[in-house]
Structures are given as C-alpha cells and as structure tokens.
C-alpha cells in the first residue's frame, strides 16, 4: 500500500493530550496574549487543565517562550484532589467505611 508522505506540520502536533491542544494553538496564544508566565499561558490555552493536570505536557509548555523567567512564573501549584475522585467518595471523606 502506498503511503502518503507525512505532514511536517509541527503546528498540528497535539501537545496537551487531554485538551487536544496543538503546538499551533500554543504558538497562536503566545502571539495573541503575550503571556508573561506559564500560568497565564495555561489560562488562555487550557494546557494542564485536563484530567492529567499537566503531568504529561509540562516540559513541552516550558519550551515556549514567556517573558518572565523568575521562579514565580513557573512554580508548580498543586491543588486537591491530587488524583481524580468520584463525587460520592469526595462527599463522604472522613466517614468510617
């Protein structure tokens, strides 16, 4: 079977697998919003806001260029639940089971 040559379009490559965010989406957001931190980039692209919470895509996002290079611009912030949890379990934490 003949194979089509692959697309070399880096822009079409998915970088945040959860949110199906592409490298092109990230570059576009960089240009449109000129974010000054990874957190701000996150707020306009949703990288790291899916179910894996950025565990996979974080290093790729760091390869983007954001103005601010201070630690505050890329510090890891973790909020519970650290792993997804069903509502009925969340609603009854602390109760004897």
């Amino acid at each position: 079977m003949a194979k089509d040559a692959p697309s070399h379009e880096d822009d079409a490559v998915i970088v945040c697998r959860c949110e199906a965010l592409t490298w092109g989406d990230v570059k576009q957001a960089m240009e449109a919003f000129q974010p000054t931190s990874l957190r701000q980039l996150k707020s306009v692209t949703r990288w790291g806001m899916g179910i894996c919470q950025g565990r996979v895509c974080r290093p790729m996002m760091a390869a983007t260029t954001v103005e601010d290079q201070t630690e505050a611009a890329f510090r890891l912030v973790v909020r519970p639940p650290f792993k997804p949890v069903a509502m009925n379990i969340l609603g009854h934490e602390g109760e004897k089971v």
Binding site: I51, Q53, P80, V85, A86, M87, G91
Partner: peptide, 10 residues
C-alpha cells in the same frame, strides 16, 4: 452526580 469525577478544586 455521585459518579461524576472531580479533577481539582480552587
């Protein structure tokens, strides 16, 4: 909603 998944809080 008991079976819905919560992935984070803020």
């Amino acid at each position: 909603m008991k079976d819905a998944t919560i992935i984070r809080s803020y």
